[in-house]
Lab assay of single mutants.
Amino acid sequence: AEKTGIVNVSSSLNAREGASTSSKVIGSLSGNTKVTIVGEEGAFYKIEYKGSHGYVAKEYIKDIKDE
């Protein structure tokens, strides 16, 4: 099942092309942005936001229960 997560940073969080800190940054998400978690790979979540996919470090995403 898809989960919703909240970007848990004070400034912004980089979204990357792949599940690695050396992957190209494809965008950034500001704190408290809601994202859909579609998968996980190592220390990263694969997320969907406004129709695009990217990878973000798990430690900066807070899971919330689907309402």
Score class of each variant (00 low, 15 high):
residue 65 K to V: 12
residue 58 K to S: 03
residue 14 N to Q: 14
residue 61 I to H: 05
residue 22 S to D: 14
residue 62 K to D: 11
residue 17 E to P: 06
residue 48 E to R: 13
residue 21 T to N: 14
residue 57 A to T: 05
residue 34 K to S: 07
residue 18 G to L: 10
residue 63 D to T: 13
residue 59 E to F: 07
residue 18 G to K: 13
residue 37 I to F: 01
residue 10 S to N: 11
residue 13 L to E: 03
residue 13 L to H: 03
residue 46 K to V: 09
residue 56 V to F: 01
residue 45 Y to T: 01
residue 65 K to P: 09
residue 65 K to M: 11
residue 66 D to K: 09
residue 38 V to E: 03
residue 33 T to I: 06
residue 52 S to L: 14
residue 60 Y to Q: 06
residue 32 N to R: 06
residue 48 E to V: 14
residue 32 N to C: 14
residue 11 S to G: 15
residue 63 D to S: 09
residue 58 K to P: 00
residue 54 G to F: 08
residue 41 E to A: 07
residue 26 I to F: 02
residue 36 T to E: 05
residue 49 Y to Q: 00
residue 62 K to T: 14
residue 31 G to P: 15
residue 13 L to W: 02
residue 21 T to P: 13
residue 17 E to W: 05
residue 9 V to I: 10
residue 62 K to W: 09
residue 38 V to N: 01
residue 9 V to Q: 07
residue 53 H to I: 14
residue 50 K to I: 05
residue 28 S to Q: 15
residue 61 I to C: 04
residue 33 T to E: 10
residue 14 N to F: 14
residue 21 T to M: 14
residue 16 R to E: 04
residue 42 G to E: 07
residue 8 N to Y: 08
residue 7 V to E: 02
residue 56 V to R: 00
residue 37 I to M: 00
residue 51 G to H: 05
residue 61 I to Q: 00
residue 14 N to L: 15
residue 34 K to D: 02
residue 5 G to M: 04
residue 43 A to Q: 11
residue 49 Y to M: 06
residue 31 G to Y: 12
residue 55 Y to S: 00
residue 13 L to Y: 04
residue 49 Y to H: 03
residue 35 V to N: 01
residue 21 T to G: 08
residue 59 E to D: 07
residue 46 K to N: 01
residue 50 K to A: 11
residue 15 A to G: 04
residue 49 Y to N: 01
residue 18 G to P: 04
residue 34 K to C: 10
residue 6 I to G: 01
residue 25 V to Y: 05
residue 63 D to N: 09
residue 51 G to F: 04
residue 49 Y to G: 00
residue 50 K to S: 07
residue 66 D to A: 11
residue 51 G to I: 01
residue 47 I to T: 03
residue 11 S to Q: 10
residue 50 K to C: 12
residue 33 T to K: 04
residue 4 T to D: 03
residue 54 G to H: 04
residue 47 I to P: 02
residue 11 S to H: 14
residue 43 A to M: 11
residue 2 E to N: 15
residue 56 V to G: 00
residue 6 I to F: 09
residue 47 I to N: 05
residue 3 K to A: 05
residue 51 G to K: 04
residue 28 S to R: 11
residue 45 Y to D: 01
residue 67 E to G: 12
residue 13 L to R: 01
residue 20 S to Y: 07
residue 46 K to Q: 06
residue 62 K to I: 14
residue 27 G to L: 11
residue 17 E to S: 07
residue 3 K to V: 08
residue 67 E to V: 14
residue 49 Y to L: 08
residue 55 Y to H: 01
residue 49 Y to A: 00
residue 29 L to I: 13
residue 1 A to M: 13
residue 33 T to L: 06
residue 2 E to V: 15
residue 31 G to T: 11
residue 38 V to C: 09
residue 36 T to G: 03
residue 53 H to E: 06
residue 26 I to C: 09
residue 14 N to V: 15
residue 12 S to M: 11
residue 24 K to R: 11
residue 38 V to P: 00
residue 23 S to N: 04
residue 38 V to K: 04
residue 36 T to R: 12
residue 23 S to P: 01
residue 31 G to L: 09
residue 53 H to D: 04
residue 34 K to F: 10
residue 37 I to Q: 01
residue 38 V to D: 01
residue 1 A to C: 15
residue 63 D to K: 09
residue 24 K to Y: 05
residue 43 A to F: 08
residue 15 A to I: 15
residue 23 S to H: 08
residue 22 S to Q: 11
residue 42 G to K: 04
residue 60 Y to R: 03
residue 58 K to F: 03
residue 4 T to Q: 09
residue 8 N to T: 11
residue 63 D to V: 15
residue 22 S to L: 10
residue 24 K to L: 07
residue 15 A to H: 04
residue 43 A to E: 13
residue 51 G to N: 07
residue 45 Y to S: 01
residue 49 Y to D: 01
residue 12 S to G: 12
residue 3 K to W: 15
residue 57 A to C: 15
residue 30 S to D: 12
residue 30 S to T: 13
residue 46 K to E: 05
residue 8 N to R: 09
residue 53 H to Y: 15
residue 40 E to Q: 08
residue 62 K to F: 08
residue 31 G to D: 11
residue 10 S to C: 15
residue 11 S to M: 10
residue 37 I to L: 03
residue 14 N to M: 13
residue 61 I to E: 01
residue 2 E to A: 15
residue 53 H to F: 15
residue 26 I to E: 04
residue 41 E to Q: 08
residue 2 E to Q: 15
residue 39 G to V: 02
residue 52 S to F: 12
residue 42 G to R: 02
residue 45 Y to L: 06
residue 57 A to P: 15
residue 20 S to K: 05
residue 46 K to A: 04
residue 19 A to N: 04
residue 45 Y to G: 01
residue 20 S to R: 03
residue 15 A to S: 04
residue 35 V to T: 00
residue 12 S to H: 13
residue 48 E to Y: 12
residue 1 A to V: 13
residue 21 T to W: 14
residue 27 G to K: 03
residue 18 G to H: 14
residue 38 V to G: 00
residue 53 H to Q: 06
residue 45 Y to E: 02
residue 51 G to D: 09
residue 42 G to S: 05
residue 44 F to Y: 12
residue 29 L to C: 05
residue 16 R to Q: 10
residue 33 T to A: 08
residue 7 V to H: 03
residue 29 L to H: 02
residue 20 S to F: 07
residue 40 E to C: 08
residue 7 V to Q: 02
residue 38 V to Y: 06
residue 64 I to V: 12
residue 56 V to T: 00
residue 66 D to V: 14
residue 31 G to W: 10
residue 43 A to Y: 07
residue 12 S to Q: 12
residue 29 L to N: 01
residue 31 G to Q: 11
residue 49 Y to I: 08
residue 47 I to F: 02
residue 59 E to S: 07
residue 32 N to V: 05
residue 61 I to K: 00
residue 1 A to L: 14
residue 4 T to K: 08
residue 47 I to Q: 01
residue 59 E to A: 10
residue 62 K to V: 14
residue 41 E to H: 07
residue 46 K to Y: 08
residue 39 G to Q: 03
residue 59 E to K: 12
residue 29 L to A: 00
residue 11 S to R: 07
residue 20 S to M: 06
residue 26 I to A: 02
residue 14 N to T: 12
residue 25 V to M: 05
residue 35 V to H: 01
residue 65 K to T: 13
residue 43 A to S: 11
residue 47 I to W: 00
residue 42 G to D: 06
residue 61 I to D: 00
residue 41 E to G: 02
residue 9 V to E: 06
residue 44 F to K: 00
residue 51 G to A: 05
residue 46 K to H: 05
residue 7 V to K: 02
residue 26 I to T: 03
residue 2 E to H: 15
residue 22 S to N: 12
residue 8 N to H: 10
residue 6 I to Q: 06
residue 39 G to N: 02
residue 19 A to D: 03
residue 32 N to K: 07
residue 17 E to A: 09
residue 64 I to K: 03
residue 6 I to E: 04
residue 54 G to P: 01
residue 3 K to Q: 07
residue 1 A to W: 15
residue 43 A to T: 08
residue 15 A to M: 15
residue 2 E to G: 15
residue 40 E to P: 00
residue 53 H to P: 05
residue 15 A to T: 10
residue 6 I to L: 08
residue 65 K to E: 10
residue 8 N to C: 15
residue 37 I to H: 00
residue 23 S to V: 03
residue 46 K to S: 02
residue 40 E to D: 06
residue 29 L to F: 05
residue 26 I to R: 00
residue 5 G to V: 03
residue 65 K to H: 12
residue 15 A to L: 15
residue 39 G to L: 03
residue 8 N to E: 07
residue 36 T to M: 10
residue 7 V to R: 01
residue 29 L to W: 02
residue 24 K to W: 04
residue 4 T to W: 12
residue 23 S to L: 04
residue 58 K to M: 08
residue 22 S to M: 09
residue 53 H to G: 04
residue 4 T to N: 07
residue 23 S to Y: 06
residue 26 I to G: 01
residue 32 N to M: 10
residue 18 G to D: 11
residue 36 T to V: 14
residue 35 V to A: 00
residue 4 T to L: 08
residue 5 G to W: 05
residue 2 E to F: 15
residue 18 G to E: 14
residue 47 I to A: 01
residue 19 A to V: 07
residue 10 S to V: 12
residue 37 I to T: 00
residue 54 G to Y: 09
residue 10 S to Y: 09
residue 1 A to H: 13
residue 27 G to N: 03
